[in-house]
């Protein structure tokens, strides 16, 4: 077992060192253990899994809460499929990455690519003005732009849908794109720190900057409303999050709640001020407490 290998570094058996070495349970051991956990997780599910019917979701809750089963039934009426992502703390960003690139691959929307590229440039300037050193983020930016160009067909570097899945499962690409989104998110939160401050205060006791340092930029830190709002605003991409939890209405009817994150930036081409109804998010994520997956509407 991998666990024994890591733990037995000092020579002892797995059980003995677990209890004797608490005092010297240093960073090395923590890193070791974390990588073991993520290796375990990796065996269970790739970064981005294959598409599954909604019924696969119901199977998970066979003996679970009737409210959840009821909700999954309703979900099944609106959504065709689910694509799971690995629960490594990066699931929101990873889901967003795949869903967005897949959308571009399917739609071949050149105008959208041009629009987001301009946004990415803005994000780059934001980071520079916040004092980030270029070399610390440019690789991540370059890699995302490369993927963006690849999903547009008609050039030498164009990739197929299968290739997109392969890349999304390749750590050296997938993690870089996730990190790109983390940079964009941190930049947006810090740029508009006054706006985000009250939300950040609710999640942590520190300042906006500390929040970004501890909960946005490090890989594996889970995402919350703040992250989603910031990423959606920064890139001008609307996101729908469907909530699958045990909450139910007092009136008796069970319904599946969703929340649309509509970019506040006014330069969205099809946004008319005030009405958020006109925007149909093309990225839909399923939220279950602690985790995000991708949903496919019918």
């Amino acid at each position: 077992m991998q666990n024994q290998e890591g733990c037995g570094g000092g020579g002892g058996g797995a059980t003995s060192c677990e209890f004797e070495d608490w005092g010297s349970f240093g960073d090395e051991a923590i890193i070791q253990q974390k990588s073991e956990i993520s290796a375990d997780e990796a065996q269970k599910i790739p970064f981005v899994a294959d598409k599954e019917p909604i019924s696969a979701l119901a199977a998970e809750y066979q003996s679970g809460s009737p409210i959840l089963l009821e909700k999954i039934k309703i979900l099944g009426e609106q959504y065709a499929a689910i694509r799971r992502t690995r629960g490594d703390g990066n699931c929101f960003f990873r889901s967003f990455m795949f869903s967005y690139l897949e959308h571009i691959l399917d739609s071949q929307d050149q105008a959208e690519v041009d629009r987001i590229k301009a946004k990415v440039e803005e994000c780059r300037k934001t980071l520079q003005s916040l004092g980030y050193t270029d070399f610390t983020f440019e690789d991540f930016f370059a890699l995302f732009l490369e993927q963006l160009d690849s999903v547009l067909q008609g050039s030498e570097s164009s990739i197929s849908h299968d290739e997109l899945i392969i890349r999304s499962r390749d750590q050296s690409i997938s993690d870089y794109v996730v990190m790109f989104f983390r940079f964009v998110t941190a930049g947006e939160i810090r740029k508009r720190s006054e706006f985000f401050e009250p939300f950040v205060m609710g999640l942590s006791n520190g300042t906006v900057e500390q929040f970004c340092k501890s909960a946005v930029e490090p890989m594996g830190e889970e995402s919350d409303h703040v992250h989603i709002t910031a990423l959606s605003d920064a890139l001008g991409v609307p996101i729908r999050v469907v909530y699958l939890d045990r909450s139910s209405c007092d009136t008796g009817g069970v319904s599946v709640n969703h929340h649309d994150f509509i970019p506040t930036t006014s330069d969205l081409p099809n946004s008319t001020s005030g009405s958020t109804q006109s925007i149909q998010p093309y990225i839909t994520l399923l939220y279950r407490p602690g985790h995000y997956d991708i949903l496919y509407p019918k």
């Binding site: 960073d27 923590i30 890193i31 974390k34 980030y132 050193t133 070399f135 610390t136 983020f137 991540f140 990190m179 940079f183 340092k213 501890s214 930029e217 490090p218 890989m219 594996g220």
Partner: peptide, 10 residues
Amino acid sequence: HPEHWQPSWS
């Protein structure tokens, strides 16, 4: 902190 190391550091 190893869990809080971030790529923007060098």
